[in-house]
């Protein structure tokens, strides 16, 4: 009896001290991890807000303005980032989703699947500059084509492909085999089972992965620096050699003096890019939540 009550009393001083030290350490570590992020966010919002609040920010490009002259906006860069992102997604998503379907639905457990999986793992580890130089070598050095927005998109495809393929694979794995069997038992051929039962069941998860993959490549800078020239004017054609994008807009203004209007545009571009990526993340959450509700 006495030993039992002994363990129930509060811990001795030593143990309490250890508890306190560890607790403080954990809190401080969390603070250290969060502090730089908050700092970055606060300074970008503080410095960038005035720029993006002007009406011309969203409706005009920088044609006819200089870093010394106020006015103009980031329309060229916003459109450029969205367009390059869209072209990237149009190429990467079908390949990634169909690749994942191949790996999970058709080649699961085979040597082929392991080989492709291994390749995808390697691909997901390559730095963006290597992807950019690979496309540069292929399209520009070997094939003699010029730099273009499409070339930048192709480099981004190499970066987006493995993330979307992996996330789609995970989502397809989550679809229980019992659903596939149920479909087979109704006399559905395999491809219809995949298209009509497996994909719809995993759809919200696949869509979430696609959006997150897109958000990730939209902030990539190296391929844009190498494969497409920055332009201050709005260009719409994907084959144009000059196109403004938000990351390269930030880069182009990095040497502007603090007192000039061009300086606040750099912060504005950074804030716009963050808002864009955040918007995509929120969209992904919304899609994921919509999918969950349907399950109930």
């Amino acid at each position: 009896m006495s030993t039992t009550t002994g363990t129930l009393t509060s811990p001795r001083g030593g143990r309490r001290a250890v508890d306190l030290v560890v607790r403080v350490l954990v809190y401080v570590s969390a603070l250290i991890a969060i502090a730089p992020l908050v700092w970055i966010l606060v300074s970008i919002v503080a410095e960038g807000l005035p720029a993006i609040l002007s009406a011309s920010w969203w409706t005009q490009d920088l044609a006819g303005t200089t870093d010394r002259r106020a006015g103009g906006g980031a329309l060229h860069a916003i459109i450029g980032t969205l367009e390059i992102g869209l072209v990237t997604a149009v190429v990467a998503v079908p390949v990634a989703v169909m690749g994942a379907i191949f790996l999970i639905e058709y080649a699961r457990g085979t040597r082929w699947a392991r080989l492709v999986s291994f390749t995808v793992d390697i691909l997901s580890g390559i730095p963006s500059i290597v992807a950019a130089l690979f496309v540069y070598t292929l399209l520009i050095t070997l094939l003699g084509l010029g730099r273009s927005a499409v070339a930048a998109s192709l480099a981004l495809v190499l970066l987006m492909l493995p993330t979307v393929l992996r996330s789609t694979e995970e989502m397809l794995k989550l679809v229980p085999d019992s659903l596939r069997e149920a479909a087979y038992a109704l006399g559905l051929p395999k491809w219809k089972t995949v298209v009509q039962v497996v994909i719809p069941t995993a759809f919200s998860g696949i869509a979430t992965g696609v959006i997150l993959g897109l958000a990730r490549v939209m902030g990539e800078t190296a391929p844009l620096l190498i494969l497409v020239a920055y332009a201050r004017n709005l260009y719409l054609s994907p084959t144009t050699s000059n196109m403004g994008t938000l990351p390269t807009m930030i880069n182009s203004g990095r040497n502007v003096a603090e007192t000039l209007p061009g300086y606040s545009r750099v912060w504005g571009a950074a804030l716009t890019l963050i808002l864009l990526v955040m918007g995509l993340n929120l969209l992904a959450r919304g899609v994921a939540r919509a999918g969950r509700l349907k399950d109930r």
């Binding site: 069997e181 038992a185 006399g187 559905l188 719809p200 069941t201």
Partner: peptide, 21 residues
């Protein structure tokens, strides 16, 4: 086999309605 399964249906151990439908 697909044609066979149209003639011979099956009900499984755990209920498995299609969640997307």
């Amino acid at each position: 086999p697909v044609a066979v399964r149209r003639l011979v249906g099956m009900v499984f151990q755990r209920p498995n309605p299609f969640p997307s439908m």
